[in-house]
Amino acid sequence: MGDEKAYASIYEEYAQLMFSFGMRFTTNRELVKDCIHDVFVKIYSNRSNLNTTTNIKFYLFVALKNELINVFRKNISFCSIDSTESLLTVDYITEDNLIDKEEAQERNQKVIEILKILSPRQKEVLYYRYIEELSFEEIEQLMHINYQSIQNLIQRSIKKVRDTFPDFVTISLLPFLLKV
């Protein structure tokens, strides 16, 4: 019965994060909620067989993503998937607590432009790595690609940024210099 409390606290801690994550694959709120529902029901009915997992967040993300993909497969009208492309969309916004507002504005603009040139797949990796802060092994499992591919995706993103915006650094990094 002590499981019940742990179960409820997992919901409290992660349901909101799961929702944000799920909403990156679709705009259908109800669908995401349904899938979160199914993930938690499955956890409950399999609770005796569950392995101890070190990263609950990652476990829940994988479960939710699988749940969503199953729905997408069954009902293609939910979204337009190009199976070779990433399902994930990331709209990057920049920090608002920067010291210099004008600089921040400029930098914002740059970042948005840079992100436009990245492929969805690259964006997905960046999202997992730098926002959700998942490990490489976890990203490998989530995206079904190997370590090297992840590294490549990240490195190519940076290279793209460097090639497309040679002046990016000097423009955008004043705030950091001021900070340090």
Partner: peptide, 18 residues
């Protein structure tokens, strides 16, 4: 260093919430 730093720190995501 600055390129890497801005790359890592400037990424933020709009989150949908329940």
């Amino acid at each position: 260093f600055d390129l890497a730093k801005s790359f890592v720190t400037s990424l933020k995501v709009k989150s949908s919430k329940m």
